[in-house]
Structures are given as structure tokens and as C-alpha cells.
């Protein structure tokens, strides 16, 4: 039984009378508790795929099944986090984190009580009552992810969450994310441009091709867990990186460039 199934989902827009294929028919089957990365050049339909899974846009064809139930066009069934932290600047960190619970109708007091220990355990202790602009980019992303976690769905979509962070912070955040994933046993779908990041974090990597987006390969990452920074230097890691580089290099160049 798969947690999440994407069955022949595609998305076509009509722009200036012309049909533009954002994503060709794509099928994915993701078991519960997996960490899955999706990698590909910009414009390969990664974000379109996420928006469909999150129920924010409707696929042109195909189905999205969560625990066997069709969730096409229904939002609120999976957690979703974007590259921008999207914290509300007029709310404190604590009140930002409980946003999902509040929408669900949990009282503010109860929600705060539930969020407090999470903030303490995952590196935001002492920042509960700060406003977002007072925090560093890494800290804000932590708050944004905890907000998604506290919303408490089994599947979490992360769209380049660390894309805007510097290399040092990014490495720290990757370790932090792995810890959270192990603690909470969520199924994670993770979009990234960064091959190292994809290998370091994932069980499986889906490679998408350039526009029109199309699923090109699925690679299983045979690396021991828990992963450490030494993992980044192991032979296995290097050879996986080679495979991925080759896959991405086969891409046709954009029109006009040689």
C-alpha cells in the first residue's frame, strides 16, 4: 500500500491560444515514511506537480491518491512549505507556528500549549515571542517548517525550502530536517536544484526533464542512515552524484543558446 500515488497526472495551460505543457503524464508511487526528492532544471514542472498534490490547481488529466482516496482539487490534505518562509510579520513566532491549528479550530491557548515544546526541542527556544523580521533566514525557515509539521498531515511537500540560505546554514538545516523526519516519521517530498542535497537527504530521487516536464528516472539512494557529514565524501555518494550529473547533462539546451 502506497501512502501517496500520482497517477498519470499532467498539466496543460493555454497561453495566447497555444497549449503549453507544464507537466507530461507523470506517475509516482511513494510508500509511507519515505524521504523523496524531486530534482530537475527550472521550468520542469516541479512546482506545478506540488501545486496539484496540494490541491491548489487541478491537473489536466490523472489522479492524486492519498491513502487510496482521490484528493484532486482538495487543499488542506498535505502540508506544504515554500522557499519563502511566508511568516506573518504581525504575529510572533509562536503565533505563526500555530496558524494551521487555529484554522482547524483549535483554541489559541491550546495550540500554543502544543507548539511550545516543539519550539524548544527544535532550536527556537527563546524566540517564541520575537517577530519574524528579528530572526535570521535559517531560524525563519525552522519556524515555517514547524508550522507545517504542527498542521499534522502525514505527507509534507517542501519546495526548495533551503534555496535562499547560505551554504553553512543550509548544511545545518539539512541535519536538522533529518532529525525532525526521523522523530516524526512523515512522508516527505522535497524539491531541490542541489544534487548533493538530494542525495544526502533522500531515499529516492525522481529526476524530471526540461520543459515539457517529464519524469526521466527514479534512483534509489543506497546510503546508510543516519547520515553524517562524512556521508558526503563516501564512494557511494560520489558515484550517485556522477549518475545524477550525467542524467541532468543530457538535457537539451534552451533555444537560442549553443
Amino acid at each position: 500500500m502506497y501512502k501517496l500515488k500520482v497517477v498519470d497526472a499532467s498539466k496543460i495551460f493555454r497561453r495566447d491560444g497555444q497549449e503549453v505543457v507544464a507537466l507530461q503524464e507523470t506517475t509516482m508511487q511513494i510508500p509511507a515514511g519515505r524521504f523523496v526528492s524531486i530534482i530537475g532544471p527550472s521550468g520542469c514542472g516541479k512546482s506545478t506537480l506540488f501545486n496539484m498534490i496540494a490541491g491548489l490547481i487541478k491537473p489536466t488529466t490523472g489522479k492524486i491518491l492519498l491513502d487510496g482516496q482521490n484528493i484532486v482539487g482538495k487543499s488542506g490534505y498535505v502540508g506544504y512549505m515554500l522557499q519563502k518562509d511566508l511568516l506573518l510579520p504581525w504575529r510572533t513566532i509562536l503565533d505563526n507556528v500555530i496558524l494551521g491549528l487555529e484554522i482547524r479550530g483549535v483554541s489559541k491557548r491550546e495550540a500554543r500549549k502544543r507548539a511550545q515544546p516543539l519550539l524548544e526541542r527544535y532550536g527556537l527556544k527563546g524566540f517564541e515571542n520575537n517577530y519574524p523580521p528579528e530572526l535570521s533566514g535559517g531560524m525563519r525557515q525552522r519556524a515555517a517548517l514547524l508550522r507545517t509539521l504542527l498542521y499534522d498531515q502525514d505527507v509534507i511537500l517542501l519546495d526548495e525550502p533551503f534555496g535562499a540560505l547560505d551554504a553553512q546554514t543550509r548544511l545545518q538545516m539539512q541535519g536538522w530536517l533529518l532529525r525532525i523526519w526521523e522523530d516524526f516519521q512523515k512522508t516527505i517530498l522535497f524539491i531541490t536544484h542541489d544534487i548533493d542535497e538530494a542525495i544526502y537527504l533522500s531515499d529516492d530521487i525522481y529526476v524530471l526533464s526540461h520543459r515539457p516536464g517529464k519524469l526521466k528516472a527514479k534512483i534509489h539512494v543506497e546510503l546508510e542512515r543516519p547520515r553524517r557529514e562524512e556521508t558526503l565524501l563516501s564512494d557511494n555518494f560520489i558515484s550517485l552524484k556522477q549518475t545524477l550529473l550525467d542524467l541532468l547533462r543530457e538535457e537539451p539546451k534552451d533555444n537560442g543558446t549553443t
Binding site: 490541491g55 491548489l56 488542506g76 511566508l86 506573518l88 504581525w90 496558524l99 494551521g100 482547524r104
Partner: peptide, 25 residues
């Protein structure tokens, strides 16, 4: 910010939630 609205919908929000939690502030 359209992305803020999108975020709220992804958290299962109805329009009235987006109105009170994003639009008014």
C-alpha cells in the same frame, strides 16, 4: 502577497480565514 493566500489555503483555510488572518492585517 498571493503566496500568503496560497499558504493559508494549503493549511486548509476557507476564504473567511484568509480574510481575517491575512487580508485585514
Amino acid at each position: 502577497d498571493k503566496d500568503l493566500e496560497k499558504l493559508l489555503y494549503s493549511l486548509g483555510a476557507k476564504r473567511r480565514h484568509v480574510f481575517t488572518k491575512v487580508v485585514v492585517p
